[in-house]
Design a protein around this nucleic acid. Structure first.
Ligand code: ZN
Ligand code: ZN
Length: 256
DNA sequence: TAAAACGTGACC
DNA sequence: GGTCACGTTTTA
């Protein structure tokens, strides 16, 4: 009874509350593309969406117009980037093994999910983000879904479709790879994950200004609690999962 | 164990 | 150089 309410949270009256920043679009350029036309009532348990929608979604026309790509063509997510786990584990290796075995068919599971033909965004909080891949696993992946978040290989974070899918997928890219500069140049520095941009909190566009994070933004350096990405809330390696074990297992599967 | 504080990566 | 916010460390 709290979760649902939490999400709706202290619906900020309007973006005026969104602190100073959170420029009309709280989401970074790469994010704001995800201009979902959903009727908010989807993610909010509010009897009268019309009202909240205004405050939360804000159909700013400015968002509509896409200036034919920002000056900075967010480089397409190259595989290696996505495979690198935040924990330093190179999923690439595992992936290679998988691909060699023909298991990893990077087919975007977006077929209809993105089509919007189905208003039912079966997006149930966190599960929604990682569900994309579920079919794969269930179908012919010898791994349990729980294995995937293993090496920071979070579907929610680096949505696969981004690579294969067309413009839409790429544009909506939120947590595509990481900046090339930060990848190797950092020198062992751990990279930050990015919000998925699709979960309920991510879709929120305004800060509540009431939660502890909002009130304590100066010191807390945290995003509004109601906007905290569900994916980021999860531990990078999943609860009680040792990523190294995961890789070992993968190798073991293919190399004996 | 959760929350607060802090360091700093990422982006502009 | 400033802001935002993720990840880690410290504190309660
Ligand atoms: Zn808040
Ligand atoms: Zn999210």
């Amino acid at each position: 009874m709290s979760t649902a309410v939490d999400i709706a949270g202290p619906s900020s009256p309007d973006q005026a509350h969104s602190s100073a920043k959170i420029p009309n679009e709280p989401l970074r350029p790469s994010l704001k593309r995800s201009n979902h036309p959903y009727s908010l009532s989807h993610y909010i348990s509010t009897p009268s969406p019309a009202v909240d929608v205004k405050g939360l979604i804000q159909p700013s026309p400015a968002q509509e117009q896409r200036p034919t790509q920002p000056s900075k063509p967010r480089r397409a997510p190259s595989w290696p980037d996505m495979w690198e786990s935040p924990s330093g584990l190179h999923l690439a290796h595992a992936a290679e093994l998988l691909m060699r075995a023909g298991l990893l068919a990077l087919t975007p599971a977006t077929t209809e999910q993105a089509s919007g033909s189905g208003p039912e965004e079966d997006e149930e909080d966190s599960s929604g983000c990682s569900t994309d891949f579920q079919p794969f696993l269930g179908a012919w992946f010898p791994f349990s879904p729980a294995l995937f978040p293993l090496a920071g290989f979070q579907m929610g974070g680096g949505h696969w479709r981004s690579t294969a899918v067309g413009a839409e997928g790429i544009e909506g890219l939120v947590a595509e790879g990481y900046s090339p500069s930060s990848l190797g140049g950092g020198g062992g520095g751990r990279r930050k994950r990015k919000r998925c941009g699709e979960c309920v909190p991510c879709r929120r566009q305004t800060n509540c200004e009431q939660c502890s994070s909002c009130r304590n933004r100066k010191r807390g350096h945290q995003i509004c609690k109601y906007r905290k990405c569900e994916e980021l809330k999860r531990k990078p390696g999943g609860p009680g999962f040792d990523s190294r074990l995961g890789l070992k297992w993968v190798k073991h599967l293919f190399e004996g």
